[in-house]
Simulated scan of single mutants.
Amino acid sequence: MEQVRPGLWSIPLPLPWAKPAHVTVYVFETADGPYLIDAGWDSDDAFAALAAGLDTVGTSVAEVQGVVVTHAHLDHFGMAGRIREASGAWVSLHPLDNAILSQFENGFATRIPGLMARAGAPAEMTEHLVKGTQAAVRRIPRPDVLIEDGGRPDIPGWELRALWTPGHSPGHLCFWEPANRLLLSGDHVLPSTVVGTPEPDESHPDPLGDHLRALARLRGLDAAEVLPAHEHRFTGLEHRLAEIDAVHQGRLAEVLAGLRAGASTVWEIADHVTWHRPFRNLRGVALQNAVTDTFGCLAALVATGAARVDDGEPARWRLADA
Rank of each mutant, 00 (worst) to 15 (best):
V27Y: 03
P113Y: 10
V91I: 12
V145M: 11
H22N: 12
A123S: 12
L218V: 04
R283W: 14
H71D: 15
R308V: 01
L13K: 12
G107S: 07
L241P: 07
A123M: 07
P314I: 11
V57D: 12
A320C: 08
A246T: 12
E85A: 15
H211L: 10
V273S: 01
R308G: 10
V67F: 02
C174K: 00
F77D: 11
R219M: 04
A257D: 09
R318K: 14
G312A: 12
V145A: 08
V130R: 14
G196L: 03
P314C: 06
G236K: 11
N281P: 01
S102M: 02
P198H: 04
V68T: 02
T193V: 15
R251F: 00
R138M: 12
W267C: 12
A48S: 07
H188D: 05
G157I: 09
D55A: 14
P200H: 06
R82M: 09
V302K: 00
F234T: 11
V23D: 04
H276W: 14
P95L: 07
I83A: 14
R5D: 03
G114R: 08
I155T: 04
H204T: 08
Q288W: 03
A21M: 03
D45T: 15
F28Y: 06
G107A: 11
T197N: 06
L13I: 10
A299I: 02
L182Q: 13
I37Y: 03
H211F: 06
G171Y: 00
H128Y: 07
I11M: 10
D222N: 12
M125E: 05
R219F: 00
D38C: 02
G296V: 01
A136W: 10
W267T: 11
H71P: 02
G88V: 01
R5S: 13
N281Q: 13
T30A: 06
A31R: 11
D149Q: 07
T165I: 01
W17A: 15
T110I: 11
G220T: 03
L208E: 00
L282H: 05
G284N: 12
A117C: 04
W176D: 13
G236W: 09
P228R: 13
S10W: 09
Y26A: 07
H188C: 08
D55K: 15
Q3I: 04
T304M: 14
A320W: 05
A123Q: 15
V273I: 14
L241N: 04
F234W: 11
R118H: 10
L241A: 07
P141S: 10
L163I: 15
I244Y: 00
G58H: 02
I11R: 00
H94Q: 10
R118M: 08
L50M: 06
L36M: 07
N98Y: 11
A31W: 08
V4N: 02
L241Q: 08
E29Q: 08
V57S: 10
A253T: 14
A290N: 03
P198A: 01
D149W: 00
H232M: 04
P166K: 01
P34L: 13
G114A: 15
N281D: 15
D144G: 04
H204D: 05
D321L: 08
E105M: 10
H168P: 01
N106G: 06
T165D: 02
R161L: 08
V291A: 04
T235K: 06
P278L: 07
I269A: 02
